[in-house]
Design a protein around this nucleic acid. Structure first.
Lengths: 210, 210
DNA sequence: GCAGGACCTTATCGATCGATCAGACTTCTG
DNA sequence: CAGAAGTCTGATCGATCGATAAGGTCCTGC
């Protein structure tokens, strides 16, 4: 594998940079247009490389998609674990509010995550099984565990955690997933810090009481 | 136009039925796989016709997509106006709860609506302008008007209506949009009446207070 | 009863898709 | 310095895409 040899020997710095440029371009186009709608030629054009180079760094379009999605969920995991690490000694309710805010901030910065989930998980397809078992289920388990603990302590109403999960993962990112539509309909800029903070305020107010 | 002539003269009953079968198949496949991912041959196969027949009844794939989306939003409009008509004399908060429940019930029965919005409205594309101005904006105006009235009367916290809109249109349908994923993750069947009712209970509790 | 329109099919077009191959260029190694 | 390995490109493959042309069948109206 050229990839592993390059990574271990690091003979040229350009290969890894090129790989990262391809992954970033692929993530944007896959999340925007879907797996079928994103052509490898357009991904290559955005990454400023030629199209056959994608098949040099990745064995197939499917492999490129998986690598891009892996990077995306790795960023989510890193953001949430970093945030959790800074919450030692904080009471559980405050910690939960801050974790929800972190999830919303990440969803605003990387709406590609939710775009890809909604593209692949609505119908059983060749990529749904991989995506759910590898990435979505850990996210589901973490969020529902948090909500179950909060419900037991009386901080949330007695709603089954599955419903809470889909309320949160719907209410939190939709404004950012539909960014261009939101800008056009409401005039708000969903990439601005003020709007992101206001949305986090709103979701937390509904979740944890008025 | 063959379409109008058929409808006015009604020479053969099969033409309109075929048209409806094509529209239903197109709606399912467009919402599942996106505009690019849904091939006209697969739509034709699901409608049990040959592929060139789509270009006989519709001038292009784009025209077929627009016709299918028109029918989808017409069904939403019909459901909501019918529900509103049955609410004379009901106080505003109860009416709002019932309208939200109707919106959730429709989203559960026809998740294609939200799937198509999220496919087309995340990036400016050839179909987003048409979809937003023709269908999404009226929905946005109706929902935000309802929320603004509720906020003025103190039934909702003072949150800008745009945020309320994206919280509702995210929290309400996501469980049904991601139906196969939900079934796999939680074991719940998002097409069953019990789960739909439970989700409506949860969203209303989330929105209108614990 | 036949002329014409409505409805549908088979065959096929050019364009674009993902993927592959041979070779060129660069950099490291012996 | 010569060869090997890593990185990238131009050319091109077969498959599939949306769309069209041409023809056939059946019903309707004169």
């Amino acid at each position: 594998m050229a990839r592993t040899v390059t990574r271990t020997r690091r003979t040229r710095p350009s290969a890894d940079q090129t790989r990262e440029r391809i992954l970033a371009a692929a993530l944007d186009l896959f999340s925007d247009r879907g797996f079928d709608g994103a052509s490898t030629r357009e991904i290559a054009q955005r990454a400023e490389v030629t199209q056959p180079l994608l098949n040099y760094h990745f064995s197939s379009k499917d492999d490129l998609w998986r690598a891009a999605v892996d990077g995306l969920f790795a960023a989510l995991t890193r953001a949430m674990t970093d945030r959790t690490a800074g919450l030692r000694g904080v009471d559980e309710l405050t910690a939960a509010r801050l974790l929800v805010r972190e999830f919303i901030a990440f969803s605003a910065e990387m709406p590609q995550l939710h775009r890809i989930i909604t593209q692949e998980c609505k119908v059983d397809g060749p990529r749904m099984d991989w995506l759910v078992e590898r990435h979505v289920r850990p996210m589901y388990d973490g969020i529902t565990a948090l909500f179950s603990a909060l419900t037991e302590q009386g901080h949330l109403p007695a709603i089954p955690p599955a419903h809470l999960y889909y309320i949160l993962t719907g209410a939190a990112p939709t404004m950012f997933v539909l960014g261009p539509e939101c800008r056009r309909l409401s005039g708000l800029d969903p990439t601005s810090d003020e709007v992101v903070d206001a949305h986090a305020d709103a979701v937390c107010m509904f979740l944890f009481g008025h």
